[in-house]
Computed example of a mutant assay.
Amino acid sequence: MSDIIATSDGWLRHGARIYRCALGKGGCKPEADKREGDGATPLGRYPLRQLLYRADRLPAAPQARLPGRALMPEDGWCDDPADPAYNRHVRLPYAASHEKLWRDDPVYDVIVVLGHNDDPPIPGMGSAIFLHVARPDYSGTEGCVAMALPDLLDLLASWRPGDALQIARGDGQKP
C-alpha cells in the first residue's frame, strides 16, 4: 500500500513515477474549509472509490484494480446541497442541480471517484471531487485533480488496493 501524492504546485507522484497534474482554479484548501462551488481542491487523503470511463472513446477499458463501469449518456452527479442525493451518482434527467458526466469534451473520458465528503456526504462541503483527464493546457479544475490521459491510464495500471490519493501543499520545487 502506498499513497499517490498530488501537490498544490501541480505534480503527482506514485512510487518512482512523477506526472504533471492540474488542481482547482480556487487553489487548495483544508478539507474542513472546502465549500460547494469554491473551485478549490481539498487537501487530505482520499480513497479511490470507483472508475468510470467512456467506452466509446477509449480503445479498451482502463486496466485498473478498481471497481468500474462504462459511462452512459444518462449518468450525472448531484451537486445540490439541499438534495438527498448530494454528492452521489444520479440518472438524468434529474430535477436537482447536477453535473453531466457524459461530456462533449474529453475531460471525463476517464473518471476516478475520490472518497471526499461521501461517508456520509455533508451538505455544502463539496461534491464531485474526481481524478480525471486534464485539459491540454492543464488549466484549473472545479476542485478535482486532472492528468493527461496517458498518465492517468498509467497511474491506474500501477494502482493497488489500499492506495489513496493524498493531496498536499507543494514546496514549489519540481520533484
Rank of each mutant, 00 (worst) to 15 (best):
Y108M: 08
I167E: 00
D151H: 14
Q50C: 12
D154R: 04
Q50N: 11
P120C: 04
P73K: 14
G124S: 04
R88A: 15
L12F: 07
L66C: 01
T41D: 00
I111L: 15
H89C: 03
D171L: 13
I111M: 11
A95G: 13
S97W: 03
A16Y: 11
P84T: 08
G44E: 03
I111N: 07
T7D: 13
K25F: 11
P161M: 03
P161G: 02
D137L: 14
A96F: 01
V110G: 10
T7S: 15
N87M: 00
R91F: 11
P67Q: 08
F130W: 11
C21P: 08
A60W: 12
C144H: 02
A6I: 10
V133W: 00
H14G: 02
Y94E: 02
D151F: 05
A96Y: 04
G39R: 10
R88C: 14
S158K: 10
L58F: 09
D163L: 05
A134I: 01
P30N: 05
P42W: 05
G124D: 02
L43P: 09
A22N: 08
A22Q: 07
V90E: 00
L149W: 01
Q63M: 09
L156C: 07
G68T: 06
S158A: 15
P123D: 00
C144S: 10
G115S: 10
H116S: 08
G24N: 05
D109T: 10
P62I: 01
A128S: 09
G39D: 09
P175T: 13
D33C: 11
I5P: 06
G26D: 03
D83H: 15
R17Q: 14
Q173H: 13
G15P: 12
I129Q: 06
G39W: 08
G37C: 07
L155P: 00
P150Y: 03
V145T: 14
G124L: 01
K29Q: 13
D154L: 02
K29P: 01
V133K: 04
C144F: 06
P47H: 13
P42R: 12
K34Q: 03
P62T: 03
Y46Q: 02
T141Y: 12
L153K: 03
G162H: 04
R65I: 05
D80Q: 08
A55M: 05
P106M: 03
D151W: 07
P30L: 09
D137M: 14
Y19S: 09
R169Y: 05
R69E: 14
A60E: 15
H116N: 10
W11V: 06
L66D: 02
S8L: 09
C78K: 11
L101R: 06
R91S: 14
L153V: 04
